[in-house]
Nucleic acid binder design. Structure first.
Length: 274
DNA sequence: AGATAATGTACAT
DNA sequence: TGTACCTTATCTT
């Protein structure tokens, strides 16, 4: 279940359970077996997250770089199976366990390699001090649609298909608007909104984006019950009426991903003069 | 800008 | 048994 909030939550969970103590490492699935053997019993001293990348620091031994990809998942204290790429067991009395399955990346890397990853990622709304101006500098120069730019991790780190669709909806922005036509004040509002939404996402471990007045109880509609669990305006609501204006939510593949939007709330705007 | 491959699970048919 | 998926690297136009 991977957007940036998932990874930052994972970092927090790993820190709480394992940091500062020797940790057992193993790879039942086998692909990480050599590195797990090297790390087994070492102290996990630092946990870091940037966008959708997680870094587990083992001092001189280096960092375990984890990227969940589309299907990667982490379970805590769930039964081990033969698909577990990395298993950590630690805590004061070895009472905590983590099982990583199906990651796109799980490799032992050096500090230099870790830095190279940070260098190619844009600012992350969940990293304190990250600078939204760096993202806007690229957005405001681009003819690419704002929907594609928000998913580009070099521009902005951590936003995925759900936050992309939802934040554009919340700000009434046409997903096909070229980045260079996105006004500065709208970008500033989007960034501030992402900071708030994604922090809440870390707290609750899911994505909720509907405002109080559109929540199921307030509108007398049934709560959303799909595999993601959160309340959203447009993501995977194709053909259903928009919660705000009633227009049918639309979908269209864009750069290999399904884009969802409400044509009523996110109409195209004429290009600004100049 | 598209097509493809990789990984594991859950849900639909 | 098929298909979708909160992703991205690596090809070819």
């Amino acid at each position: 279940m991977p957007e940036g909030h998932t990874i930052h939550r994972l970092a927090q969970d790993c820190r709480e359970r394992f940091a500062g103590r020797p940790t057992r490492a193993a790879s039942p699935q086998g692909k990480f077996a050599d590195s797990a053997a090297l790390l087994d019993g070492a102290v996990l001293d630092t946990v870091d997250a940037h966008g959708k990348h997680l870094f587990l620091g083992f001092g001189e031994l280096g960092w375990v770089h984890v990227h969940l990809g589309l299907i990667g998942k982490v379970g805590f204290d769930d039964p081990v199976t033969d698909t577990v790429r990395l298993r950590l067991v630690g805590g004061r009395h070895g009472e905590h366990a983590m099982n990583l399955r199906g990651p796109a990346a799980c490799q032992l890397i050096t500090g230099g390699e870790k830095q190279a990853i940070h260098d190619r990622l844009g600012p992350d709304p969940l990293r304190a001090g990250d600078d939204p101006d760096r993202a806007y500098a690229r957005i405001s120069r681009s003819r690419i649609s704002v929907a594609a730019l928000l998913m580009d991790q070099k521009v902005l780190a951590g936003v995925g298909n759900v936050y992309r669709a939802e934040v554009l909806f919340r700000h009434g922005v046409d997903p096909f608007l070229p980045g260079r036509e996105l006004p500065r004040r709208v970008w500033d509002a989007i960034w501030a909104d992402l900071v708030a939404l994604m922090r809440e996402g870390v707290r609750t471990n899911r994505i909720d984006t509907v405002r109080p007045e559109h929540e199921p109880e307030a509108m007398g509609r049934p709560p959303r019950r799909d595999d993601h669990g959160g309340e959203v305006y447009v993501y995977r609501r194709t053909g259903q009426p928009c919660l705000v204006c009633g227009t049918q939510v639309r979908t269209r593949p864009l750069a290999n991903r399904n884009l969802f939007w409400c044509p009523g709330c996110q109409p195209p705007v004429p290009a600004a003069a100049g």
